[in-house]
Nucleic acid binder design. Structure first.
Length: 960
RNA sequence: GCGAGGGUAGCCAAGCAAGGUCAAAGGCGACAGACUCAAGAUCUGUUCCCGCAGGGGUCCUCCGGUUCGAAUCCGGACCCUCGCACCA
């Protein structure tokens, strides 16, 4: 029969939500479990990959619910930033790809036009996320608590958070250099290119500006990334075709390209353009280098790009292939030399000077590499590779040589920093921030780096905060284990982070200066707290306008006086105390789960904000990081739309099949490629389990067999294992046992001739509830078919216990399985068709000795002690030779066993009795007569003398 | 570049922190058998090599080391993925 998953899912999610079993109320005295997943940013449709982490969270929550916890699992969305704005803009200009995505996801045409409004975008997607994704997947989430970061009440909370950070001294102000469009203000430069139309991969570079004195008092300003190479300067490059300008910066007159002047204007407070400067006129003159004071000739070079740096370049031919080839070309170019009056003497004075010792290279790497690569002209494209190669090895492995004064012997990396500092403080250098490639705003203007003099930061570098956060992290459950260790380093490394920004963004106004909007990472760190409040705001019991500082202080920090707060806010005392009690009940947060992209962004600041603002008993208890589900060809891209809409996938594969896929396909801590066939495989698996359960339920006999006890025992063993897995949030191992191992146990039971109605229904009652975390809908349906009252979702899982009788039952069955494996091995090799099988279990003396060995507390049993006691027990002369040999063997074997195995095997079972009991089964399996003897039974048939091979746990076998 | 993670049998994927119980779970695929008129589904078995008695050999990217013993620990090489801060 084919199951109608879709109907089953709809039936049960409706039933759950009608019965409100997903709603969370504090129940004082009862254990609580509070988990969230990092809420998604509202930037468009999500894809099937996103559901992995969410589903994992729901599975954990459901498991906790079934193991004695009162759970809280709220959800929300994060709309701060420019995601919704950029989406709305695309709709507005009828961007084809966006319209296409909307259509593909079934967005009605009428709704589409509304989505040119960012707030409508947020509203629309909030609805999609909650209804089409999370409810559709049957999450045990308390929908009453939904919140979104641009809700007015949420904003009050964020304002409060900022006030607390400020009063803790954690908000600081200092200049900052940010990418900005002249028209539109700050823009985001990132690969998704939401704000920009070109240059998403650009990086912000910090150039050191070096000032070269001209005789007329002006300064030629060269921009460099390698200030330490001033020791190797030989000349200066000016492009005769570029338009330069004189600018006044403070007291000084600088010469830079016109384009560079524009950049400087955005970054220097006291600066003005004086007039144009003639580049060609400078060529042939001389300038004095900073730091060394060396006089340098000025040569022409058409390679100086007015858009890069200052459009003026200093020349270090020892280590810059471009500079070296520039000189080589100039030497050849008699015309230019004549035109600019460049003499042989000037060229001779510009010979490369070795300054850096780099392993694998001679004193003049630039000369060496151009020769090796056969580069002789500035137009050779290989020049770029050569430059990269020399830069890389010189910078990372090089050491300054004896020509470098005080810096001789220092690694280049260190010398660079030291010289930068020294020249900056002595006024010989300055800084210029620039983008590594051209970036264009959506409006078409060029994006430049602009100084923001009064930028606010959260001071995550604060030593006390860092220290307390690190200590807290040590006490937390953080998975995977690698991240538990790494987060220490991440917290240490965290610096101040800009927490507000200018421009057109969604978010909360900064309470200390309304021109700023609070930035997206800053307003999403403390928010799990808000889920205990949002519910009251959503129900209208408290209102945004009146949620003041005193209100939050009272409910979250336990500060202030109830009467005063009630009076100031107008909220009822009863509500105020309910909110406060609810916070005290649910907090701290037990688990925050989020994707791996959060490891160096959200998680550390999430922790630090809690530590900074809340009392220690409310600091977080756990973090789980999930890796991604990717498309077969690479990452499923959020900005480019999901591979298939989530509701479509749910319809096609079934929610439970998808949930099982997420749970079982791999550990949470590896990336997995989404493949339709795999999800279909899980759907088929669920159908098979359904059929198996039906087949078992249909059995209606009371016949008692020895496997009944085994089945009961095996379920106990499984339960204990399963709870151990979930203690580590190892949902994958859990699912493996529930969906693959337990069905295997059930089939084995049937194959062994089990058919006891009571035993079966007992096992099903254990098994079906175990399916709830991963596949709740199908579990409910099975539960109902079994005649149980709803809901299995709220049932409690058995704990399971491993008693002696469990051990014995397991050991017996293991014996049978082991024997079957041996027999089939023999049959396979010999290709016999058996007519009779004789099984000879180990003789009493071997069994006794085996038990002695297991009982020995030493990890390696004492061979001579084994021999002694065996000799004392068994006097027969023919054993005299066998005992020592076997003692040695058995001691070695036992030495290798785990304590668990020893325990199992120590549960002494009569092998002959056990196998005799399974005789009928074995005869059916082997298709021949089976006789079971003890090896020391004279009645046995053993013409080939196999009996002596009998060992405890592995009887001898003779097949004819 | 800096920081982090990874490379396991035809494929996917456990194992690796606490070395021995690992020829290495589980799934998929393939092959064989049962069932069936047949196909599919299902169930059972096999799926590195050798072996007519339950055994042996060679394996966990490559090279080297530690150890009685290494998929697991250490060093090196090659390859892949992710994060690097105002996109969230």
């Amino acid at each position: 029969m084919t199951l109608n998953f879709s109907a089953i899912e709809a039936k049960w999610r409706t039933a759950w939500y009608n019965a409100k079993i997903n709603e969370s109320e504090p129940r004082p005295g009862e254990k609580k479990f509070f988990m969230i997943f990092a809420y998604p940013g509202v930037t468009g449709y999500l894809h099937v990959g996103h559901m992995r982490g969410y589903t994992f969270s729901d599975a954990v929550v459901r498991y906790k619910l079934m193991t004695g916890h009162n759970v809280l699992f709220p959800v929300g969305t994060h709309a701060t930033g420019n995601g919704a704005i950029s989406f709305a803009r695309k709709v507005e200009r009828q961007d084809e790809s966006v319209i296409e995505i909307l259509r593909a996801n079934g967005c009605p045409e009428g709704t589409m036009s509304r989505l040119s409004d960012p707030l409508e975008v947020v509203r629309f997607f909030n609805n999609v996320y909650v209804n089409d994704y999370w409810k559709r997947f049957g999450f045990m989430s308390d929908w009453r608590r939904f919140t979104c970061t641009i809700n007015p009440d949420y904003s009050r909370f964020i304002e409060w958070q900022m006030r607390k950070l400020k009063s803790e001294g954690l908000l600081i102000q200092k200049p900052y250099f940010a990418a900005a469009c002249i028209e539109h203000g700050p823009v985001a430069v990132d690969a998704s290119e939401t704000d920009i139309s070109k240059g998403g991969n650009a990086e912000v570079l910090e150039y050191v500006l070096l000032k070269f004195d001209l005789e007329d008092g002006r300064k030629l300003v060269a921009a460099t990334l390698r200030p330490e190479t001033v020791f190797g300067l030989t000349n200066f490059w000016v492009n005769p075709e570029v338009e330069y300008v004189d600018v006044r910066v403070g007291e000084e007159i600088w010469v830079v390209s016109k384009q560079a002047a524009e950049k400087l204007k955005l970054q220097k407070d006291d600066m003005e353009v004086k007039g144009s400067a003639n580049g060609a006129e400078l060529i042939g003159r001389r300038c004095r280098a900073p730091f060394t004071g060396k006089m340098l000739a000025i040569f022409p070079s058409l390679l100086c790009d007015p858009n890069v740096g200052t459009g003026l370049v200093m020349s270090v031919p020892s280590d810059a292939p471009v500079d070296w080839i520039g000189l080589v070309e100039l030497e050849r170019d008699k015309t230019s030399r004549g035109k600019y009056g460049i003499t042989d003497k000037m060229l001779q004075d510009s010979q490369p000077v070795p300054i850096i010792k780099t392993p694998g290279w001679g004193p003049l790497p630039a000369v060496e590499i151009t020769e090796k690569m056969g580069i002789t002209s500035l137009s050779d494209p290989k020049l770029e590779d050569a430059t990269k190669e020399i830069y890389k090895s010189g910078f990372h492995k090089g050491v300054m040589n004896e020509a470098c004064g005080d810096f001789a012997g220092q690694p280049v990396e260190r010398a660079k920093e030291a010289m930068r500092e020294e020249m900056l403080s002595s006024g010989q250098a300055d800084l210029l921030y620039d983008l590594s490639e051209e970036v264009l705003c959506r409006c078409g203007n060029r994006v430049l780096i602009k100084k923001i003099p009064d930028q606010w930061f959260i001071d995550y570098a604060n030593p006390a905060l860092t220290e307390r956060s690190k200590e807290q992290a040590l006490t937390m459950k953080i998975l995977p284990r690698e991240y538990y260790e790494n987060i220490q380093g991440v917290l240490e490394w965290y610096r101040e982070r800009a927490c507000v920004r200018l421009g057109n963004w969604l978010g909360t106004r900064f309470p200390f200066d309304q021109k700023w909007i609070i930035e997206a990472i800053a307003d999403s760190t403390l928010y799990p707290v808000y889920y205990v409040i949002s519910r009251y705001a959503n129900e209208g019991l408290i209102t945004a306008e009146r949620m003041d500082e005193g209100f939050f202080d009272y409910v979250l920090l336990g500060r202030g006086d109830l009467e005063a707060v009630a009076k100031a806010t107008g909220f009822s005392r009863e509500v105020l105390d309910r909110v406060r009690a609810e916070f005290e009940y649910w907090y701290p947060l037990d688990i925050n789960l989020g994707g791996k992209e959060h490891m160096t962004v959200h998680f550390p600041v999430f922790l630090m904000n809690h530590v900074a603002v809340l009392r220690p008993q409310h600091w977080p208890r756990g973090i789980i990081v999930n890796w991604y589900i990717t498309a077969t060809g690479g990452k499923i891209s959020k900005s480019k739309g999901g591979a298939q809409p989530i509701p479509d996938a749910a319809e096609r594969f079934g929610v439970d099949a998808m949930r099982l896929f997420y749970a079982h396909i791999a550990s949470l801590y590896v990336d997995v490629a989404w493949e339709d066939e795999k999800v279909e495989g899980y759907r088929d698996r669920l159908e098979r389990l359904w059929n198996l359960a039906s087949e078992l339920s249909a059995i209606d006999t009371d016949a008692v067999t020895e496997v009944d006890a085994w089945l009961a025992a095996r379920m106990q063993t499984r339960l204990v294992r399963l709870h151990k897995f979930m203690a580590e949030y190892d949902l994958r191992s859990y699912a493996n046992d529930v969906y693959f191992e337990i069905p295997q146990d059930m089939r084995w039971y049937l194959r062994r001739g089990g058919k006891n109605k009571m035993a079966i229904s007992k096992a099903l009652e254990t098994w079906v509830p175990l399916m709830v975390p991963a596949t709740p809908h199908i579990a409910e349906e099975l539960w109902e078919r079994m005649g149980k009252a709803p809901f299995v979702s709220t049932a409690q899982l058995e704990q399971g216990s491993i008693t002696d009788s469990v051990l014995i039952a397991e050991a017996k069955e293991k014996l049978v399985e082991r024997l079957m494996a041996d027999v089939s091995e023999i049959l396979k090799v010999t290709e016999m068709r058996p007519t009779r099988t004789t099984i000879m279990t180990a003789p009493a003396w071997k069994q006794d000795m085996f038990q002695d060995a297991l009982a020995d507390p030493k990890s390696r049993p004492d061979v001579s002690a084994l021999i002694k006691s065996a000799m004392a027990r068994h006097q027969s002369p023919e054993l005299k030779k066998e005992i020592p040999a076997f003692a040695k063997e058995i001691a070695a074997e036992v030495a290798k066993m785990s304590p668990e195995d020893r325990q199992v095997l120590g549960a002494r079972v009569s092998e002959r009795e056990t196998l005799s009991g399974a005789k009928e089964f074995l005869e059916a399996e082997f298709g021949c007569r089976v006789d079971v003897f003890s090896a020391d039974d004279p009645a046995r048939t053993d013409p080939k003398g196999k009996a002596r091979f009998a060992r405890p746990g592995r009887p001898a076998v003779f097949i004819e």
